[in-house]
Design a protein around this nucleic acid. Structure first.
Length: 210
DNA sequence: ATTACGATTGCCT
DNA sequence: GGCAATCGTAATC
């Protein structure tokens, strides 16, 4: 059960509910810590799977490290969609990464989901990951592989109640309060911005300590 | 048309 | 810790 795996991290939480209207309309640096503790669910023909978000990063238009920094392109158009839209991109010729677009339509902001605590459908995730014993969702590309998130999910509405592909539920008891923060991972520019957020002490992070 | 380069991962030393 | 894998994208020629 999910609450067992996440014991003590969300005091008073009884489960997850649909996000309220406007939840995703705040700016990426404000939305990123609010996504910690949210449940990322994916329904597919291979089975359902879900995980609790434990690590995120914010990206904005005035941010030299962001895909949206040089304006809209066919690839990054979902970053400019209204908040709550899935932005999935393909990188290094082999990996997909999953983002939640933030802010109002026309604003190119998004939150990269970097790590999950596996919650349900762990057998499906394990199989998709090639039966590897190490972390199944402790990296932005690894969690996409585990959950079966691909480019075909780019542009999906993440606040919908059901249907194939990724969607998001928010913790009934509110977001994680004591989020840790650090510089973002895997970029060379704007290292001064502390826009990586994580659940302190979680064993499911992509990196132990910054 | 050509080219350089990734918001990464896994294997090798 | 170092580095190859692998290819779509976007900038440049």
């Amino acid at each position: 059960m999910a609450s067992d795996l996440f014991a003590g991290r969300i005091p008073g939480s009884g489960g997850w509910i649909l996000p309220q209207p406007g939840f995703f309309s705040r700016r990426a640096p404000e939305l990123a810590p609010e996504l910690l503790g949210c449940l990322l669910c994916v329904d597919s023909p291979e089975g359902k799977a879900s995980g609790i978000i434990v690590e995120t990063e914010a990206y904005t238009e005035d941010d030299p490290a962001s895909h949206s920094h040089r304006g809209p392109t066919p690839r990054n158009r979902s970053m400019f969609a209204r908040g709550g839209t899935a932005y999935v991109y393909f990188i290094y010729g082999m990996h997909s990464c999953f983002n939640v677009s933030a802010g109002p339509a026309g604003v190119g902001e998004a939150v990269l989901v970097r790590a999950l605590e596996p919650c349900s459908g762990i057998d499906v995730m394990f199989r998709r990951r090639g039966n590897r014993g190490d972390g199944m969702a402790d990296g932005p590309a690894k969690l996409c592989q585990a959950l079966g998130i691909t480019l075909e999910h780019d542009g999906l509405d993440l606040s919908r109640a059901s249907g194939p592909g990724p969607r998001l539920l928010v913790p009934e008891g509110g977001a994680v309060k004591d989020a840790g923060r650090s510089a973002r991972v895997g970029i060379s520019r704007a290292l001064d911005r502390q826009w990586r957020f994580f659940v302190p002490g979680s064993p499911f992070l992509s990196r132990r300590s910054p």
